[in-house]
Simulated assay, not measured.
Amino acid sequence: MLPWVVRRTRLPLLSLSCVDCRSGSATTGEGRFRVNANGKLLDVWLLVRCVSCDRTSKLPVHERASVRSIDPGELHGYHVNDPELVAARLLDPLLARRNHFTLDWTGAWRLDTPTERLDRPWPLQVAVAFADPVPVRPDRLIAQGLGLSRNEVLRRIKCDISLRRATSTGFTFTVLAGD
Rank of each mutant, 00 (worst) to 15 (best):
M1F: 08
P3F: 11
W4L: 14
W4Y: 08
W4Q: 10
V5A: 07
R7N: 12
R8I: 15
R10K: 10
P12F: 04
L16I: 04
L16D: 02
R22K: 12
S23F: 09
S23K: 02
S25C: 01
A26K: 06
G31L: 06
G31H: 04
R32W: 03
R32H: 09
A37D: 15
A37L: 15
D43A: 06
D43P: 05
D43F: 10
D43C: 07
C50D: 09
C50N: 04
C53P: 01
C53V: 01
C53I: 01
D54V: 00
P60V: 01
H62P: 07
H62D: 12
E63R: 14
R64E: 13
R64F: 10
R64I: 05
A65M: 11
S66P: 08
V67A: 15
R68K: 04
I70N: 15
D71P: 05
P72Q: 08
G73A: 12
G73C: 02
G73D: 10
G73S: 08
G73Y: 06
H79E: 11
V80L: 13
D82Y: 00
L85D: 14
L85V: 09
L85Q: 15
L85M: 15
A88I: 00
L90I: 03
D92W: 03
L94Q: 05
L95A: 00
A96D: 00
R97M: 01
R98H: 06
H100K: 04
H100M: 08
F101E: 02
G107D: 12
G107T: 04
A108P: 11
W109A: 14
R110P: 03
T113C: 14
T113F: 14
P114L: 02
P114W: 02
T115K: 12
E116H: 06
L118P: 14
L118N: 14
D119A: 11
R120P: 05
P121W: 02
P121N: 02
L124V: 11
Q125Y: 04
V126C: 10
V126S: 09
A127C: 08
V128G: 05
V128W: 02
D132G: 12
D132V: 15
P133A: 11
P135Q: 02
P138F: 02
P138M: 05
D139Y: 00
D139R: 01
R140S: 13
L141K: 06
L141C: 04
A143G: 13
A143M: 13
Q144C: 13
L148V: 02
S149A: 10
S149K: 10
L154D: 12
L154T: 05
R155V: 13
R156G: 10
R156N: 11
I157S: 06
K158T: 11
C159S: 12
D160N: 08
I161R: 14
S162M: 10
L163N: 13
R164P: 09
R165L: 11
R165N: 07
T169F: 10
T169S: 07
F171M: 09
F171L: 08
T172V: 13
T172S: 15
T172M: 14
T174A: 13
V175H: 12
A177N: 10
A177Q: 13
